[in-house]
Simulated scan of single mutants.
Amino acid sequence: MVFTCTQCGQCCIYLGDYIVIEEQTGPYTYACSCVSTNTPFQAVVDEDKRNIFNNRDFSALHPHACPFLRPAGDDRIVCTIHNTSPAQCKIYRCVAVRVYSGDTMVGYITGMGALHSNDSGLRALYESCVSDLPASDEERDSWLSGFFKTHGYRTE
Rank of each mutant, 00 (worst) to 15 (best):
M1G: 12
F3C: 04
F3W: 02
T4W: 00
T4H: 07
Q7V: 02
Q7D: 10
C8M: 07
C8F: 07
C8A: 06
Q10Y: 13
C12G: 05
I13F: 05
I13D: 03
Y14L: 07
L15A: 14
G16R: 08
G16H: 07
D17F: 04
Y18R: 13
I19N: 09
E22L: 14
E22C: 04
E23W: 00
T25D: 00
G26Q: 04
Y28G: 05
Y28I: 06
A31E: 05
C32Q: 10
C32G: 08
V35R: 14
S36Q: 11
S36T: 06
T37G: 03
T37V: 03
T39D: 09
T39A: 13
T39P: 03
Q42P: 07
A43T: 06
A43Y: 03
V44S: 11
V45N: 05
D46P: 08
E47P: 10
D48G: 11
D48Q: 15
R50Q: 15
R50W: 11
N51Q: 15
N51K: 15
I52K: 05
I52P: 08
F53R: 11
N54E: 15
N54H: 08
N55G: 01
P63K: 14
P63L: 05
H64W: 13
A65C: 14
A65K: 13
C66L: 12
C66A: 11
C66N: 12
P67W: 04
F68V: 03
L69C: 10
L69S: 10
R70H: 10
A72L: 13
A72G: 11
A72R: 11
I77D: 01
V78E: 07
V78T: 06
T80F: 08
H82K: 03
S85R: 15
S85P: 02
P86A: 00
A87W: 09
Q88I: 12
Q88D: 09
K90V: 05
K90L: 12
I91D: 07
R93N: 08
R93C: 01
C94A: 14
A96L: 09
V97F: 00
V99K: 02
S101W: 05
G102V: 08
G102P: 07
D103C: 01
D103F: 06
V106R: 11
V106Q: 07
G107N: 09
T110W: 07
T110Y: 08
G111M: 02
M112H: 10
G113I: 09
L115P: 12
L115G: 04
L115D: 04
S117R: 03
S117K: 00
N118W: 01
N118Y: 04
N118I: 01
D119P: 02
S120N: 10
S120C: 01
S120F: 04
R123K: 14
R123L: 11
A124N: 13
Y126A: 03
S128C: 08
C129M: 14
V130P: 02
L133F: 15
L133M: 15
R140W: 05
W143R: 02
W143P: 04
S145M: 00
F148R: 02
F148Y: 14
T150G: 06
H151C: 02
H151L: 00
Y153A: 04
Y153T: 00
Y153F: 05
